[in-house]
Nucleic acid binder design. Sequence first.
DNA 1: GTAAGTCTAAACAAAT
DNA 2: CATTTGTTTAGACTTA
Length: 701
Amino acid sequence: MMQESGTETKSNDSVIQNGAGPDNHLLECTLRESRSNGETPLEVGAVELAHLQQQQALQAARQLLINQQPFSGIKANKRNDKHPSLQVPVSVAMMTPQVITPQQMQQILQQQVLTPQQLQVLLQQQQALMLQQQQLQEFYKKQQEQLQLQLLQQQHAGKQPKEQQQQQQVATQQLAFQQQLLQMQQLQQQHLLTLQRQGLLSIQPGQPTLPLQSLAQGMIPAELQQLWKEVTGSHTADDVVCNNHSTLDLSTTCVSSTAQPKTSLLLNSQASTNGQASVLTLKRESSSHEEYTHNHPLYGHGVCKWPGCETICEDFPSFLKHLNSEHALDDRSTAQCRVQMQVVQQLELQLSKDKERLQAMMSHLHVKSTEPKASPQPQLCTTFGRENGWICYSQQLEEGITGILKGLNLVSSATLSKTASEASPQSLPHTPTTPTAPLTPITQGPSVITTTSIHNVGPIRRRYSDKYNIPISSDFAQNQEFYKNAEVRPPFTYASLIRQGILESPEKQLTLNEIYNWFTRQFAYFRRNAATWKNAVRHNLSLHKCFVRVENVKGAVWTVDEMEFQKRRPQKISGSPTLIKNIQTSHAYCSPLSAALQASMAENSLPLYTTASMGNPALNSLANAIREDLNGVMEHTSSNGSDSSPGRSPMQGMHQVHVKEEPLDHDDNDGPLSLVTTANHSPDFDRDRDYEDEPVNDDME
DNA sequence: GTAAGTCTAAACAAAT
DNA sequence: CATTTGTTTAGACTTA
């Protein structure tokens, strides 16, 4: 816990230091497109630096304000006190199109303090804000391109006063637009503030990693406006005017220019009004629906892209209608939202891993390019050979090679440091460390989901206790590949897992060692701390009556008394509706995870999800996964808690062998006595292999 | 507040 | 004798 908060603080500092957090995707887009326009790296670097300076100044000012006005708002509740990892760095919250980060959404969903109507309204606001910001950023990008173009023209044609004027005008427009972006962020902050006031978001007092919320809480838009002026004004002494393209500082020019884009007028007129009203007005008055069609992340190619939906909507209005009717705020949508959050978290984790891999690759290439005689690093060779890295990471590689081509100078350091800073070293215990010194200091990126936040290890392990009794078979079948490769603790009890392992075996019986092997084979999580979980397995085998030990010639095997296993749950399932609801949401939460991940990967044309990273799963569609899961839960809850998986009879695998001495044998279910004969299963794993500290390469299967 | 279920840790004994 | 397997107990945590 302390470590997490520490790293977060550090990462926040790093954002301020280099001024280029993960929120610079806009800049990167600009850079990429500029490159394709044939511009020289020097110009790109100049604009990039200007942008960085601007962001740096703004960040510093924000930090200053935060320090001066410590947040004293809503007291965080007890639960969130234990989860500092939920805090959101300002850079992420400010610039990501999601407007509210998954962590914040998770807070909202977990607390469930609002009525569905309130949440609906908030979500609509959220949606409108998101759209608006995307449009603004698009516009900003275009303005950047235009400026770049003019700069290029000027360089070739010499400096003419008229062009300078034009250029200044464009830069002024850009500034005005940046101002609108800032005001957009103010709207978001107001939005967040609304959430806070309604108890949706809990803020920890004086928490430095929550500058956004602190800012929103402590300032009114007018103050932000003043801050902006101060920030921009502080640079006017430098007198770096916009026509000096070599050190172009967009934050310096006159804000009071009259050449403001239309959208800015719209925003300016309403920025200080009530957030909801302005949002609605913006949505109504801004550009046509076609733009939404292009921008709405849930709509594309005439299809609703809500996870698991894929409903065909001919036009955008019909899509909106569909969205509001089919995906209103209910348990199902909430569960799907949670699934999506988990998907995002996994993707971020994967991204961090791949970025670290890229860092290693780049370091390796850099060494080779500068020191051709340097001996190859064996660890890196492992990385390359095992992970097919070359093919998979073209985009990152593009950035990296661009950096290398720039000679690894200061201009490209932002990209490189970003790459490095978003790597998560401690999350990769089995990943080879960077063989050479990193080009820039590796710090914890603010958007990176750490291992401890993803993996339910340690003190938070009991968080998933509400999932104890969820059905395992269908879930496990769908997420098999996921659990094999992701070091995520499966949300099932030991008893459920043992039962699953035994029932999966051809003879419905396993020796203890085979059970061990099944655990390590099926779950990456159980490739560590073998002593602990093996003890737990033995403990469960002994403790639960549903596990029956059967002696045979070669020793003993364990079987499942399905009737006993089923006995444990009905009264609990059929009990409170709350539990049913919990199971429903939890079920939907964890089950389609892998499928959602796969679908997300496929949809985004990300080739990352390869055999190396996540196994070689069959691409089940997310739609089917969610539908099946939700339907399965409904069947489950309506059938009085039978957790038999589809296609598997509850009586299947039932063995009534009374080997155990049960002092209180109330068994009245004398099923067919099925004496097991022999257990001749050659273990798939070396018997003596210890997974305690030795991760297993799953390719060995 | 209590009971039930679960997990972790540990001690111990028997079997291999 | 060391390791594995199996049993039991205890404490902590979460949830109903």
